[in-house]
């Protein structure tokens, strides 16, 4: 990726992110001023609970403003991701992983049976990301291998946490 393109990407990101931080920071600062000061317990304006959130919100808004100003004046600091070659990365892969992981987390948090969920999750994850590279008999090996890994992890995690650490898993 050429420096110009990565610079443009960084500038565009900074502009929007900066505007976002400004709004967010201002909202926090505004909310902080509405926090009560427990004067009957000896608190004053500068020892009340709202002091630090107010300062942090203001700081965030200021940093956001710097990002915006810098971007408008044509400056930015491109980071590793701005310089990465788009051919080597794919956000769709991350999204697919996120969907699977979110589903698994939700099942766990909603107290579904732990081992079953874990086995399904690992099995599906491995197959999803290796399916396209495997053909014929390799696919069969993939399905079996993934199942072995999933069962091994599912039962050993359950065993270690429930029987060695006495953590109650769902």
């Amino acid at each position: 990726m050429t420096p110009d393109v990565s610079m443009m990407r960084a500038r565009a990101r900074d502009l929007w992110a900066g505007l976002g931080w400004m709004t967010f920071g201002a909202a926090i600062a505004a909310h902080a001023t509405s926090m009560p000061i427990p004067r009957h317990l000896g608190a004053t304006t500068i020892t009340g609970p709202g002091l630090l959130p107010f300062m942090l919100g203001t700081g965030l808004a200021l940093l956001g403003a710097i990002l915006v100003l810098r971007s408008v004046r044509g400056q930015a600091v491109p980071g590793p991701d701005d310089e990465a070659d788009p051919a080597t990365v794919s956000n769709r892969r991350s999204f697919a992983a996120l969907v699977l992981m979110f589903g698994y987390a939700a099942a766990f948090a909603l107290r579904q049976p732990f081992v079953l969920c874990t086995v399904i999750f690992i099995w599906a994850f491995v197959i999803l990301f290796n399916w396209r590279e495997a053909w014929g008999a390799a696919r069969l090996r993939l399905v079996a291998g993934a199942l072995v890994l999933a069962l091994a992890v599912g039962f050993s995690v359950e065993f270690v946490f429930e029987n060695l650490f006495y953590v109650r898993l769902p």
């Binding site: 049976p113 081992v115 079953l116 039962f155 065993f159 429930e162």
Partner: peptide, 14 residues
């Protein structure tokens, strides 16, 4: 004992 219990399918139900 608990390993055996874990290996049986009984733990698959809450």
């Amino acid at each position: 004992a608990s390993a055996a219990a874990a290996l049986s399918a009984s733990t698959l139900v809450p």
